[in-house]
Design a protein around this nucleic acid. Structure first.
Lengths: 340, 340
DNA sequence: TAATTTAACACAAACGTTTGATATTTTGTA
DNA sequence: TACAAAATATCAAACGTTTGTGTTAAATTA
């Protein structure tokens, strides 16, 4: 038996009241007497009335929905970001419309369009690696839909964003290794097309300079982040004339690969070479020989701050020009591995 | 300068046509001449018209949105499931409304309610561990909103679901170890409140019986899945009078913990004890001494099948009773670890 | 030519809710 | 008692779109 949803109209008819009275009663409007409010609410409950959100969305021109576009949902970093975002959205009674770009600019563009038509109230984005043109985001501005970028932010002015300062963590990492007595420190970096690689490199270099040590560019080796690539990069460093006693790697996975192949070589070098990596992801907890430390980038906090500022934006009626742009920087932080 | 969204009304006025003609023209309705169709579409493009989805949703009583409720977005298993789900939804022009229950029954209930009011077209759920009462899902039935459960399915009749048969993989796992010569095989299982634990245990026992081996219940140790708990469970097994030469563990993480603590004991036992676990998660690739095999549960495929059947349900106008219930079982599968 | 079909479009209701303006009733005041 | 003020409830428009039914003129048929 098909059961049609109850509307306020039917409640009105049943109580012999007008539609507007019922609506106002349900909202506790002061111009409705308490007694009728009671009656209406009572009847609504009895009839199992459920407000039709699509009607409300339409009528209000607001959906209480925020869009989230991430590069890859299956990546731990973004998974924990979206998790944090959803938590806050839930608390604030917003709903999350989720999509992934798979690091494809065209798809990202289409998603933005789709979400715009969905009349999301605001958008959270971590942009795709390949995205070079940002017009699709500019378009949202015209439609008065605020956008907050996070982690992977576009290199343009006049945007709201939350990002992580990799440099601080990088400097901490190198300082940490220096303090432990290392004097030749290698860097297995990612492809230099990535902003993230540049940031790591900068921090690495700065730390050396600050410690009045000279920087040897040949101690930096790029790699494609695969296991094979990592192995190759590692070997390059092992054959270096000033063989490093410590290595900073682009992320925990690279460290894992490097440590694994080091141990395969059975040189017992793992006692002599110490690793520091980025991300501080959970795999560290499962490694027998984890890197001694990892630079945490706080995906959950970034996501949280991002949605916080978005909600802020949504609840202020001033427009963007007058209130300026939110720019939040999270400091990355070196986290030493637990020994147990 | 605030730019109000263009409506078909304005297009109509500009072209001196009726609203309905514009609407029909944009949809290529046969009763509108090709020439006016051209004109209208042209004008729509010029004026940068974008259909107001909320109005359409409201009007049609359909949102082209499907809700997805998962226990934990940050868990690798669910992250890859949602990733697969979103991909298909995107292809079929549906949108995904995402939420996580954090394994909390009350929250799950509220989410179902919220999504119902959002007028989602259908729902995909992996139920919370604690959920004992399933009335909130029954409620959706009254509202004609189809639900497809996946992976964590409720123990009730008359539902659509996609699930993974753990037993086959479990039997494979034990057979595999037997074939490798092991005769005493331990099982570090999860808490027996979990259905998943029961399934593993059943498979384990069945495999032994099938091979005419007698089953020793003391070779099964429950644990709370933490590192400490795993360690304790491992020690119990090591002290067993028939010390196992192979151990099946609840999941890859438990294997990782166990292998780690085994190596800490420095007994070189790792050469003698082989592990097989469940999930085949990515951490295996980063372990120096991974389990020899792992039972893959195909989160992406489960997610994919789940949304496929949901879309099927949405596109058939017959109601549930007449068409019966979809019950899809994915066979789990033992995957041997790569050696490289 | 008159009757009939067809093509092309317009009209208006409907979806469920909110809300500003208005009407009615009650209460208070002089 | 008369009148203003306050309290309470109603009316009706609006949000943007779709769609069943009318309407008109042109094309076809007999």
């Amino acid at each position: 038996m098909i059961k049609k949803p109850i509307t306020i109209k039917e409640i009105a008819k049943k109580l012999d009241l007008s539609i507007s009275t019922v609506s106002r009663a349900l909202h506790g409007h002061p111009s409705i007497s308490l007694s009728t409010q009671q009656k209406v609410k009572q009847m609504a409950k009895e009839m199992e009335y459920e407000p039709n959100q699509t009607a409300i969305f339409f009528q209000k021109g607001k959906t209480f929905t925020i869009g989230v576009i991430l590069p890859e949902l299956a990546e731990a970093f973004f998974a924990s970001a979206i998790s944090a975002i959803e938590d806050i959205a839930y608390k604030k009674n917003y709903t999350v419309l989720l999509a992934q770009s798979h690091d494809d600019e065209e798809r990202e563009k289409q998603l933005v369009d789709k979400m715009k038509n969905h009349r999301i109230d605001g958008l959270l984005v971590s942009v795709a690696k390949t995205t070079a043109n940002f017009d699709h985001f500019e378009l949202l501005r015209k439609h008065q839909i605020p956008v907050v970028f996070f982690d992977r932010i576009p290199p343009i002015k006049n945007i709201h964003y939350v990002a992580c300062n990799i440099e601080t963590g990088s400097i901490e990492a190198v300082n940490f290794l220096l303090k432990r007595g290392h004097r030749s420190i290698g860097l297995i970096n990612g492809p230099n097309t990535l902003v993230a690689s540049g940031q790591r490199k900068e921090g690495y270099i700065k730390a050396l300079y600050k410690n009045r040590l000279k920087f040897d560019p040949t101690l930096i080796v790029d790699c494609d982040l695969t296991e094979a690539g990592t192995k190759a990069a590692l070997e390059t460093l092992l054959n270096h004339k000033r063989k490093p006693t410590a290595i900073v790697t682009f992320n925990d996975y690279v460290s894992a690969f490097a440590i694994k192949s080091l141990r395969r070589l059975n040189l017992n070098l793992d006692q002599e070479i110490e690793f520091v990596s980025y991300a501080n992801s959970s795999i560290i907890g499962f490694m027998e020989h984890p890197p001694v430390a990892s630079v945490e980038q706080f995906p959950a906090i970034q996501g949280q701050k991002a949605i916080d500022t978005l909600l802020d934006l949504l609840n202020s009626d001033e427009n963007e020009e007058t209130q300026g742009y939110y720019k939040t920087i999270i400091e990355s932080q070196l986290v030493e591995s637990h020994k147990d």
